[in-house]
């Protein structure tokens, strides 16, 4: 096997547990969308081109006939604004990607795929093949199983996602543990988690991710200033 094929399979294998946890959610999405009046082809088109699980569930929840264009486009921007942060972060580790590869990579950017890519950055070198091993298998799985859910549709009933929703939090926790370096990480996580939970409880919508992320990043910037004299080159020890 060539090095590219090896890297591609390594990415696809790493993301496998996430694919397993995503399958029932994709099936559920397809079934719910069909119940709201979309055809299976429309369900597949939405999964293939929008390709954003959280937004798709919110959109189907607000779906009407005719579907409200302005509201749903605005919702897409709000729900997905977290991607701006994820793209800016992983983009720094894409020196080995060509220009077109970067734009293709951003099309398949998801929360889980991004987290696994950042994990690879921590432990080694993020190659385009590894990234697309994650991205392509996630895209195939999401589109295939949401189409399947749309076709089996109502026969599926309302599949329970019991325990599965926590699988994503568990995956993120495991990746988060890998980011631990010193007490500064603890301070960043405390600020980010605390602000995120408070904003989640107080403000409707998906603003909690942005608020929490900025709180964490703000704390990191402040702590850098305090240690600035010991670190004239400006690189935080890790």
């Amino acid at each position: 096997m060539g090095i590219r094929a090896q890297e591609f399979s390594a990415g696809a294998i790493a993301i496998l547990p996430v694919l397993v946890a995503t399958m029932p959610i994709a099936l559920l999405f397809g079934a719910l969308a069909v119940a709201k009046g979309l055809s299976p082809l429309e369900v597949w088109l939405m999964s293939a081109t929008v390709y954003a699980g959280a937004l798709q569930f919110v959109a189907i929840d607000q779906w009407a006939d005719p579907a409200p264009l302005g509201l749903l486009v605005f919702t897409a921007l709000v729900v997905n604004v977290r991607h701006v942060l994820m793209g800016a972060s992983i983009g720094r580790s894409m020196a080995g990607f060509s220009g077109p590869a970067r734009y293709a990579a951003m099309f398949v950017l998801t929360d889980e795929g991004w987290a696994f890519a950042e994990r690879r950055v921590r432990s080694g070198n993020l190659t385009p093949a590894y990234y697309f091993g994650i991205g392509v298998s996630m895209w195939l799985s999401w589109t295939l199983f949401s189409l399947l859910g749309a076709i089996i549709g109502r026969g599926l009933g309302y599949p329970s996602t019991y325990g599965f929703n926590f699988a994503f939090s568990a995956v993120f926790i495991c990746i988060l543990v890998g980011f631990w370096s010193d007490w500064r990480t603890g301070a960043v996580l405390l600020a980010s988690g605390g602000v995120s939970a408070l904003v989640y409880l107080a403000v409707p919508g998906a603003w909690y991710i942005l608020a929490g992320a900025f709180a964490g990043v703000g704390v990191a910037a402040i702590l850098h200033a305090e240690t600035g004299n010991q670190n004239p080159d400006g690189v935080m020890p890790s």
């Binding site: 977290r82 972060s89 988060l176 960043v188 988690g193 602000v195 995120s196 929490g212 992320a213």
Partner: peptide, 8 residues
């Protein structure tokens, strides 16, 4: 880490 924490 800040984004991961904010998501969960």
């Amino acid at each position: 880490p800040a984004v991961l924490m904010a998501v969960i």
